[in-house]
């Protein structure tokens, strides 16, 4: 059963009463909220997720509304993980962004049975491409374009790696575009479903892109990685892709992971094996068409 197969009223009831359980990649997330505007947004943006009411959920999250301390006439929303509040309250309009950040945070701090790389991940021809990058490098924007142009979305944020089998696990979540990227993507991909832009968040204006239905449908299909590409968007530069050394790739990948250190030797061996089995590149680009060309060339060579 998928979210868009149940009527809105039932969806509303689930979120309000026992909590809605959806499969997001390898995890089940149980979401509780009674905040109607959020429920409406989720009904649209979560429409392809599988409902898993009878299964164990790893994450139990809630968005609750509360009165603002400074302005008693205003209401704020708060994110709760297992009843605990990891951050302060936010204006109501930001409910969706806060929910998404909260789930990311929960994954990042709790999951240690997988290696968590900080990377966008897509698949083509049965092979995974990793795009590890720091915030602000444009990886979400690039990932959005790729996932609607013939690549299968794994994640715009988490490279989830099963270290024993060297496999990557898809975790297709909403892709939060920031600031200028919102208009850029609207123009480039006019048909995709995107949530309302949320202004004044910690990261400026954010709008969430719904992941492609097919990527969610295939989210149990794991793959091995073949390419690691460190992307950087720089205005008005011609596209350039160049190979980098394994050692450089290792340092960049390991120093930008969520739980590399916590995994100790397991993490070290996993990243070393990963680098050995992949071709590593640096990519500079400014327009999507030329990037697509370069990537198609790269993936079809094999």
């Amino acid at each position: 059963m998928v979210v868009n197969q149940i009527p809105f009223e039932e969806f509303h009831m689930l979120l309000h009463r026992q909590g809605l359980r959806v499969a997001i990649g390898p995890f089940n997330v149980c979401i509780h909220t009674s905040y109607k505007p959020l429920i409406e947004q989720l009904y649209l943006l979560y429409s392809h997720y599988r409902i898993t009411q009878d299964e164990i959920a790893e994450f139990h999250v809630r968005i609750v509304t509360e009165r603002s301390l400074r302005n008693p006439f205003k209401r704020n929303i708060r994110f709760l993980l297992d009843g605990q509040s990891p951050f302060e309250s936010f204006p109501q309009e930001q409910a969706l962004a806060v929910l998404e950040w909260g789930i990311n945070l929960a994954i990042a701090v709790r999951v240690n049975h997988l290696l968590l790389l900080h990377s966008a991940v897509v698949e083509k021809n049965g092979h995974v491409i990793l795009f590890p990058a720091w915030p602000g490098s444009g990886k979400t924007t690039l990932c959005t374009v790729l996932s609607y142009q013939g690549f299968r979305l794994f994640s715009d944020e988490f490279g989830l790696m099963d270290t024993q089998q060297q496999l990557f696990l898809p975790i297709p979540r909403l892709m939060p575009l920031k600031n200028e990227s919102i208009a850029v993507i609207r123009n480039y991909l006019p048909d995709i479903v995107m949530g309302r832009p949320i202004p004044n968040t910690q990261k400026g204006t954010v709008a969430h892109v719904r992941p492609p239905e097919k990527s969610i449908l295939l989210s149990k299909h794991t793959c091995k990685a073949r390419w690691i590409i460190f992307p950087k968007w720089i205005a008005d530069t011609p596209v350039k892709i160049e190979a980098i050394s394994d050692s450089e790739a290792f340092m960049m990948l390991a120093s930008n992971a969520f739980n590399y250190e916590a995994l100790g030797a397991t993490g070290f061996c996993a990243v070393a094996d990963l680098i050995r089995s992949c071709d590593c590149f640096k990519l500079v680009y400014s327009d999507f068409d030329s990037v697509m060309e370069v990537l198609h060339q790269l993936t079809n060579e094999t």
């Binding site: 089940n28 164990i56 049975h113 250190e261």
Partner: peptide
């Protein structure tokens, strides 16, 4: 143990081991 439980137990054990180290 159900798979969704053993993964969480593993995560807990990894965390404990790391903090002890």
């Amino acid at each position: 143990v159900p798979p969704r439980v053993s993964t969480q137990l593993t995560s807990g054990l990894v965390q404990v081991e790391k903090l002890q180290q």
